[in-house]
């Protein structure tokens, strides 16, 4: 049975940040070794103070529930100024209502439970992100380091 989980988090929107953190913390609680490789926009999740400020865009996201049930809002309205903020506050309120933990809490629990937080060096260079912009405890590494970790019988997941 696999004892290791290797996760790639490549997206930095509110909805995309949940699955890697939920699975990482759950796997750690199940006595698995876990590493998350944060690459490209996924780096947003581990910027200092950023986790709870991630946003979700309604445009080109037809799966997003309608703000008023039964009334269909054309997706194109998502381009209007302020719609991302509206969608984000809607999603945050749904999450709160369902008692889902905040991203900052999940991230904290991940670090606390020994999940390795690996930031992609190349993405940091491309996006102009410095190590001090990221939360404490981050390791900075490249693709080979992640693959070496994953190649050791890990379950590998990409988000």
């Amino acid at each position: 049975m696999a004892k290791r989980m290797a996760i790639i988090a490549a997206h930095g929107s509110l909805d995309a940040a949940y699955p890697p953190l939920i699975l990482a913390t759950a796997a750690a609680a199940m006595d698995m070794e876990v590493a998350i490789f944060f690459t490209f926009y996924g780096l947003e999740i581990i910027k200092k103070g950023k986790a709870d400020k991630l946003q979700v865009a309604p445009i080109a996201n037809p799966a997003m529930p309608q703000p008023i049930p039964g009334i269909s809002v054309p997706n194109i309205l998502g381009v209007l100024p302020g719609m991302t903020a509206v969608a984000t506050s809607m999603m945050n309120s749904w999450m709160k209502k369902a008692n889902v933990a905040k991203l900052s809490e999940l991230l904290e629990m991940a670090v606390e439970s020994g999940v390795r937080i690996i930031a992609c060096q190349m993405s940091m260079d491309v996006l102009g992100i410095k190590k001090e912009d990221l939360i404490d405890g981050v390791e900075v590494a490249g693709a080979a380091a992640f693959i070496e970790y994953a190649a050791n019988d890990a379950i590998a997941l990409t988000f």
Binding site: I22, T25, A26, A29, M30, N99, V100, A101, M109, S113
Partner: peptide, 14 residues
């Protein structure tokens, strides 16, 4: 009570 996945498991583990 009231907590959503994965918190019950994380707290149970602790």
């Amino acid at each position: 009570s009231g907590l959503a996945c994965p918190m019950p498991i994380l707290k149970t583990k602790k």
